[in-house]
């Protein structure tokens, strides 16, 4: 059916177009300056605030867990699932560029896990988290951990609506990581030094690492732990309890 003139004829009939092509090509185009002043992260911040209100009304502590790839985010959560989740209902939203390997690992550890595959995006955004948590019964949870994409650069700029920002570095990454990625560490409420069981093997300088963290994130709480041996995990559980207001 022809949609050009509503004539009811089949589509391929010919129309007699008699456009008046009398443009003035010599004329100067007028330029308009349009003042905008639009904040590029405004939409994300707005959605993050919605998330935060929703989490608060469910009485939920929400952690944004950030680190380089391979620092042990998923291993930490597996440990949390084993020791802590039986008394304190926990769910995880996990972001990766591809695969749902991490979500599968967490489900095997007995935790409800929702995978967000970001494709090209190097970070999670508040909108992705909002869609993911729609699948969860938030009122039944005590703790929600958002395992961000392994990356110490981009996720720093994106508020997800978390109540606690937890940045982790493993002893194998070097003591100067906080100085190399200051924007990430500066945003941390809690800094975890992971794989502490490997500290002596890599001659990790504890004092130096703590000094560097202090320099960049003076107000952050710092904790050393090992998800493998369980060292330091009790202290973490204590802090999570406090995070819930005791």
């Amino acid at each position: 059916m022809c949609l050009d003139c509503n004539c009811g004829q089949p589509q391929n009939h010919s129309h007699d177009h008699s456009h008046d092509h009398s443009h003035d090509h010599g004329k100067k185009h007028s330029h308009t300056h349009l003042q905008l002043g639009l904040d590029l992260l405004a939409r994300n911040n707005e959605l993050a605030q919605q998330n935060r209100q929703r989490f608060a009304s469910s009485g939920l502590t929400v952690i944004n867990l950030l680190s380089s790839p391979g620092s042990g985010k998923t291993a930490l959560l597996e440990r949390l699932a084993k020791d802590w989740a039986p008394q304190h209902p926990l769910a995880v939203v996990v972001g990766d560029l591809a695969t749902d390997n991490d979500a599968q690992r967490l489900r095997r550890a007995g935790v409800e896990a929702i995978q967000i595959t970001t494709g090209q995006a190097c970070h999670l955004e508040a909108a992705m988290v909002q869609r993911a948590v729609a699948e969860l019964q938030l009122n039944e949870l005590e703790l929600l951990v958002i395992e961000n994409v392994g990356n110490l650069v981009c996720p720093a700029a994106y508020d997800l609506g978390e109540s606690l920002r937890l940045v982790m570095l493993s002893v194998t990454e070097g003591e100067d990581k906080p100085l190399k990625y200051p924007s990430m560490f500066q945003s941390a409420d809690l800094v975890l030094i992971s794989k502490i069981d490997l500290a002596s093997a890599v001659e990790f300088n504890h004092g130096l690492a703590h000094r560097h963290i202090k320099q960049v994130a003076p107000a952050a709480t710092v904790l050393e732990l090992s998800a493998k041996t369980g060292a330091g995990m009790e202290q973490l559980y204590g802090l999570l309890q406090q995070g819930r207001g005791g």
Binding site: H33, L34, L36, G37, L41
Partner: peptide, 8 residues
């Protein structure tokens, strides 16, 4: 991080 203006 702001889009301040456009010239159209």
């Amino acid at each position: 991080l702001q889009l301040t203006s456009l010239e159209l």
